[in-house]
Structures are given as C-alpha cells and as structure tokens.
Design a protein around this nucleic acid. Structure first.
Length: 194
DNA sequence: CCCTGATTCGC
DNA sequence: GCGAATCAGG
C-alpha cells in the first residue's frame, strides 16, 4: 500500500478528528499504526500533544543533532477534549452505581421529587453497559487486578454481587463501557427547545 | 497487559 | 519517503 492522495486525505482528516493512529491504520488498511504515525510526522502535522508527549532525551546513537534548537514551547493544546468527570466514589465503598434507576429513598408521603437530572447517561452508554454486563467476567473482589474493570454489579449484601472484570481501558479503573457511564461527557444538560 | 504517540534509522 | 523496531508513557 502506498500513500495515495486519498489515503493521505483520510489520514489528515482522522488525525484531525483526534482518532488514534491505530484506528486510522485500521481504517486505511494495509498499514500499521507505526506507518500512520510515521506519515503523520513526515507530513508535519504531528504535535497533538495529547496523551503522550514524549520528550525523548536520547536512546540510541545519534549525535548528529548539534542544533538543540531551544523551543519556547508554549502550547496549551486546544483539543476539544470535553470530559467532565463525575467523581464516582470507590466501587469498593460505594453500594452499586450499576443500575441506572438508582434507588432513591423517598420519605412516605412525599410527592415524586422532580428527579433532578442528576444522572443523565447517554442511552447508548447505558445500553452498552447492559450488554457488557452480560458478558462480564463476574469476578469477585479478590479477583480484581489492576487491569480488570472494577465496576460493581448487584447487591454487595447478597451473593448476586460481582465486579465487571472486563479488561480496563488504559489506566482507568473501568472497562470502556463503564468508563462511559462513570464519566459524563460534560454536557448532558440539553436545552429544551421551545 | 492493554493502549497511546515519538523517534530512529536501514531500506 | 517509508515504516519496523524501539522508546516512553498512561
């Protein structure tokens, strides 16, 4: 495969959209993420300075760079990374954030409190969670590792309690699906059109 | 271990 | 110019 105009265009577009190199590579086909990254660099449209700015000092032989070129480097990086984390209490301590319809203790006689749109999780995310829970590993507390989703499911007071256990996503404590509900996309407050 | 991008260097 | 190997990090 070669870098045709079209493929380069796709590369540029996707990279601009913040897609990862591997995703782009998969989309293009016939290339590895390394190829994509290499191309990105050659095209000069590299620094997205996102997740991994690697100020690599020097690993291998290459003193052929006598020009240190002091870069001021004042880059705030305006990536539209809109992600407002709703601090989800520790699963271990928290009861069970799994069920969307969280039990709210309503004092008898109270009129149905206008559910303050506290948790407005995208339907897709919820659906994803429900799906994922079917194939969850259903692991016990002892089975949790640093790379198993720690999302609790069920009632800790019963036997019907387990942790998701699916592979977590890079650093996060949860699998992708659960990260989706644990971290709100920030603006769930949509204005009602009049 | 999974993933991310960055860099180097033989081709 | 290309990209695998490697590096550095989450």
């Amino acid at each position: 495969m070669s870098w045709t105009d079209e493929r380069v265009e796709t590369l540029k577009r996707m990279w601009g959209e913040g897609q990862s190199a591997s995703q782009i590579a998969k989309e293009l086909g016939g290339v590895t993420r390394n190829a994509v990254i290499g191309k990105v660099h050659r095209l000069g449209l590299s620094n997205r300075t996102a997740g991994t700015a690697t100020p690599k000092p020097e690993a291998k032989s290459k003193p052929a760079t006598p020009a240190p070129a002091p870069k001021p480097e004042a880059k705030p990086r305006p990536q539209p990374k809109t992600e407002a984390a709703r601090p989800q209490a520790d699963p271990n301590a928290e009861a069970k954030p799994s069920t969307p319809a969280r039990r709210q203790i309503i004092p008898a006689g109270q009129p149905l409190p206008p559910q303050p749109s506290a948790n407005e999780i995208s339907p897709e995310a919820l659906a994803k969670v429900n799906e994922v829970e079917k194939k969850a590993k259903k692991i016990g507390l002892m089975d949790l590792t640093e790379r198993t989703c720690k999302w609790p499911v069920g009632d800790p007071a019963t036997e019907d309690f387990w942790f998701c256990g699916l592979p977590v996503q890079a650093g996060k404590p949860y699998c992708e699906a659960h990260v989706g509900v644990a971290f709100q996309p920030m603006s769930s407050r949509r204005d009602r059109r009049r």
